[in-house]
């Protein structure tokens, strides 16, 4: 069926194409989503604009926000200290709308590597970094990371020296975590923007390291 006439509807506010579900058969769960949303509007609990705004807010949350935080912490010792003391306040200070997020920053050093997991569900610092990758929510990642973090890291292509201590953080309750990756060598003269480009999503979960220039 030609559907060129509504192609303009296929870009989300983040500028990415939506996955094509408008043209597939309506599922039971999609029917439920429409019904729940319309009931909440009819009962005066929300409005279509509020739903659209919330989607836009969430779409604006991406790993690049976290990368800017990391780059500033690498460049500015005072900011680094503030981030380690109260990561929620420090990210808000940079202008990020993180809602009620309670964030703790954990830092990789020459002898420590941090990794984040949620074994009970899939808690993630979504209000800063956006939605988690699918593998983060997988049974394999949730099950294995607390027991064999080095083996999991190896699957991500990260091999650590024996004498590095791995610290795994299981997000079991009200806090969320961001890893501050180690600043790569050879970046002494780089600007914050250049540094931010080296900070990957996985390096802030602890399943990766920052890119080297």
């Amino acid at each position: 069926m030609p559907h060129d006439h509504h192609d303009h509807d296929h870009l989300s506010p983040s500028g990415h194409p939506y996955r094509a579900d408008d043209d597939t058969d309506l599922s039971y769960w999609q029917t439920m989503e429409i019904a729940v949303r319309e009931l909440l509007v009819e009962k005066g609990i929300t409005t279509p604009a509020e739903v659209a705004d919330q989607i836009e807010t969430m779409d604006a949350r991406t790993p690049s926000n976290g990368a800017k935080v990391v780059a500033r912490a690498w460049s500015d010792p005072e900011y680094h200290a503030a981030l380690m003391k109260d990561a929620s306040a420090a990210t808000r200070e940079m202008g990020f709308d993180i809602g009620p997020l309670k964030l703790i920053a954990v830092e990789n050093t020459d002898d420590t590597h941090n990794m984040i997991v949620c074994t009970l569900c899939s808690c993630y610092p979504r209000n800063l970094l956006g939605l988690p990758p699918d593998w983060y929510k997988s049974r394999a990642y949730r099950s294995r990371t607390v027991r064999e973090p080095r083996s999991v890291l190896a699957e991500f292509g990260v091999t650590l020296p024996e004498n590095t201590t791995v610290r795994v953080h299981d997000s079991t309750a009200d806090m969320r975590y961001i890893v501050i990756p180690k600043r790569p060598q050879g970046t002494e003269n780089m600007s914050e923007d250049e540094l931010a480009a080296l900070v990957t999503r996985d390096s802030m979960i602890g399943t990766g390291v920052a890119k080297t220039p």
């Binding site: 099950s143 607390v146 699957e155 299981d170 399943t207």
Partner: peptide
Amino acid sequence: DMGGDTAGPIPDM
């Protein structure tokens, strides 16, 4: 409550 289970490779990273 799956922490510590053995499970296969991390999927599709």
